[in-house]
């Protein structure tokens, strides 16, 4: 075997596969679905968006949140994830005027956002499980107050 000449070795960086959840448009679509389906006046604060965004990440998460709701909020429901990717997606969404910042802390769906929702909603093959889940939750099951108690419990038991 010939000597391997280290000097002559070179590496090419290949594109990597990233999860669909890290695609901006995909995340924005999820945000639109959440705002439209689960938020009163299509308006939500950051924490709530994070809760649903976390739930939509996998079937397991969805099942967990669903169980929590059907058991009348009595089962143990620990931490949900907070991810920077969602914040970036929200920034994009605001810049695209798909949603807008209200009072500096809440995100609300715009007309363009509603249009995007219609496009996604019309397609029967897109987000099938996700749509069913969000419809089940609806606008009234997880209110801001509920969210507050949830996060309070969280800080009580984990902080």
């Amino acid at each position: 075997m010939e000597d391997v000449r280290i000097k002559n070795l070179s590496f090419t960086k290949r594109p990597i596969s990233i999860p669909a959840d890290y695609r901006p448009m995909y995340k924005i679509a999820k945000i639109v679905l959440i705002l439209k389906n689960c938020c009163r006046s299509e308006c939500s604060d950051l924490l709530k968006s994070h809760l649903f965004s976390w739930a939509l990440k996998s079937q397991r998460n969805m099942d967990k949140l669903k169980e929590y709701v059907t058991n009348n909020f009595t089962t143990e429901f620990s931490v949900w994830g907070i991810e920077p990717a969602l914040n970036r997606a929200l920034q994009f969404a605001v810049a695209e005027k798909i949603c807008e910042l209200v009072d500096g802390k809440k995100y609300q769906l715009t007309e363009k956002g509603n249009k995007f929702f219609d496009l996604i909603n019309k397609d029967d093959e897109l987000f099938v499980e996700e749509k069913a889940f969000l419809k089940f939750i609806g606008k009234n099951k997880i209110t801001d107050k509920r969210l507050q108690t949830m996060s309070k419990q969280w800080s009580l038991s984990y902080a």
């Binding site: 995909y26 679509a29 397609d123």
Partner: peptide, 24 residues
């Protein structure tokens, strides 16, 4: 599962392009 999501993502991207959206 991942494949399904990716196909969804591609579709969403084309939908976004028709919105139109710069990100798409």
């Amino acid at each position: 599962e991942d494949l399904k999501k990716n196909k969804g993502a591609l579709k969403v991207k084309t939908l976004g392009a028709s919105l139109p959206s710069e990100v798409a």
